[in-house]
Structure formats: C-alpha cells, structure tokens
Computed example of a mutant assay.
Amino acid sequence: MILPKFANIKIQFSLKTQNIITITLNTTTTILQSAQKTILEESKSISQLTDYLTVEFAEAVLKIYETKGRLVVTGIGKSAIIAQKIVATLNSTGTPSLFLHASEAVHGDLGMVQPGDIIICISKSGNSPEIKVLVPLLKRHDNILIGMTSDRNSFLGKESHYIMHAHVDKEACPNNLAPTNSTTAQLVLGDALAVALMELRQFKSEDFALYHPGGALGKKLLLRVADMLDTTHTPQVTPEASIKKVIMEISEKRLGVTAVIENEKVIGIITDGDIRRMLNTNDTFTHLTAKDIMTKNPKNISSEILVSEALSILENNSITQLVVIDNDNYKGILHLHDILKEGIV
C-alpha cells in the first residue's frame, strides 16, 4: 500500500491475524491546503490573461459578429470538452455555433465546415499531431481560423489568422501535466468572447429567455397569466347568494376565494379570510348575503401581463389571489400557489 507522503499514520497490528486492521490518515488540513493552492494558482493564471489581451482579440470578436456564416469550435482531449461548453454558451447567448471534435473531423465530420464559416481551434500546445493534420483542412475554403492556444509560436499560432492567447506559465497539477490552469484559461476566454458578442448584439434578458423557455428565467420573462390560468375553475356567486352558497363555492373551487358577479361584471370578492372575520363578528349569518361581506373593487389584472408582474402585485399587497379580468370580462382567479408550482419564485 502506498500512503500519501503528507499523511499522519496510525497503524495497529493484530498478532492473531497478522494483518493491518486500522489505518488512520489525518489528512484534512493538508487536503484543504492543497485545494486552496490549486484555486489560488488557477485564479492567478486567470488574472494574468488580461496581460495577453490585445487588439487581435477584439478583431476576432468583430469577425465573428459580422460573419454571415456560422462559428465552428473545435479541439481535442480536454480542450474539446472546453470547446463544447463554449459552444453551449454561445448558442444560448445569440451566436449560432457548432462543435467539431478534432479527431472526428478527419473521419467525415469535416463536412460540417462550410465556406464562410469561422473556426476557433483550441489547443494548449498548438502542436499536437491531430492539430497539425486538421488545421490545413480547416482553411481549405479560405475560412478564417482563430487559434486559442498558450503558445503563439506553435503550429496553430502561426497558421491562425487571429490568436486568442490563453497563455499559462504552468499547470496547477503537481506534475505540471494534467490540464488545469490551461483549460480554465480557455474557458474564461470563451466566456469573455461570449459576453463581448452579447454586448455587441445588445442581447438582453428577454432574448436569453427565448433560448431558455423551459427554465425558471424563461418562465419569469415569457410566461403570461393566460398561459397558466385555470379557466375551468372560476368561482363566482351573485350578490344575493347566501353565505352557505358562498362557503360551498369557495370550498368546491379550492382557491380560497370567490368573485361576486353582477351583470356579468366583478363587483367584489370574498376570501376565506372574509368568512372567518364574518364568523367572529356575527352569532348567526342567515340574514347575510355575499354583498354584505364582500370586498369591493378587488385587485385585478389582465391575463396578458407577465406572471412575474402578477407576483409583484401579490407581494406588494400581501395577498394570495388576484382576479383576472379582460375587457371587463371575468376570466378567473390567479393564486400564489399556482405561481409557486411553476417554479418562478
């Protein structure tokens, strides 16, 4: 058994079994120190990237912004994984992009690269055999090639039209082998690219929501009251309805409220809270009707407003239900619980 050199070891030996029966490694402090060292080394590498930003980065961003073609991002090994993440970020922020695995490219996938496309090729060394084979093929249609590499003087660096200089002095790996600082640098440059393009496109949160309609942000920015309003349960009573009828309507529709309708118009609402207050102040309610206990001029909204706006109205007024009215026509009740179930909050 090989034990970590930094471990404090406690060994108990059993004469009966002649086996080591317990090994206690007091490594918590050292593990935390190792993690802190990695984080600090990577953050230092990232902060130094600003020293390698030149006008060339801006020119490459503008070429991508102005192209009528697509953006193809390629790489191999860990750089390929970073390329996939960059593509995902670009696609979700308004820059149509494709991922091309460098090793698969020479086995048929190169066909996805069309004239007019711009290509970003990611490689730390810029000198791997796959990159040397691939780069001339990527440029065969006079495509613009942007190299993201740590070495400007590498094969990729010299063959690229523009360089995104993802230079790192070393890896956080103790053997200076496993891609750590280098892949983080690539990732950050990819984010810098995506954000710069977003700003050029004036890409707003509403645009982002269009690409994420199923997420919480998409719902918050796109979902309207009409999209979630249950029109099959529209509790309503007449002004002359008995309190018993009111209670039955509230209970049956299970929204904790009923609208009071006169001449097809909402003139008030009655909530379960109104019922409790009525019971506290009256020994009997046989003489009361809906109009006696209703709240007049209730808060109401249009079914066309965003659910997020409706939520703000609910919160600002410390209420849990809103009457939905379109052109004076009663459409139903929006309940806070319905909004919560959608995951918007």
Rank of each mutant, 00 (worst) to 15 (best):
P115M: 01
T149K: 04
R276L: 04
P136Q: 03
N263S: 15
I131F: 02
H335F: 12
G69P: 15
H212M: 01
S302E: 11
N143R: 01
K85M: 09
L279Y: 03
S47Q: 12
L90K: 00
F57A: 07
A196G: 02
F208A: 07
V225A: 00
E252R: 13
D169F: 10
P298V: 11
Q321N: 15
N317S: 10
T93K: 10
A172E: 13
L255C: 06
I131P: 04
K5I: 13
E206Q: 04
I11R: 01
E66N: 13
I76S: 06
S123C: 08
S125W: 02
L100W: 02
F285E: 01
E59D: 13
G111S: 12
N143Q: 04
G147K: 03
V237T: 08
F13A: 06
G77K: 08
D230F: 08
N263R: 15
I319M: 14
H287T: 11
K265H: 15
I119W: 08
G256P: 07
V195L: 14
T286Q: 01
A80G: 13
K219F: 07
E171G: 09
V195H: 06
Q18W: 07
A105N: 13
R254C: 03
N176K: 07
K204P: 00
L222Q: 08
L279F: 00
A196R: 05
H167T: 12
T27G: 03
I81G: 10
T184G: 04
I243M: 03
N297G: 03
N127W: 10
R277H: 08
S123A: 04
E199S: 09
V225R: 01
E249Q: 14
E159H: 06
G215E: 02
K220W: 02
I261N: 07
I119A: 09
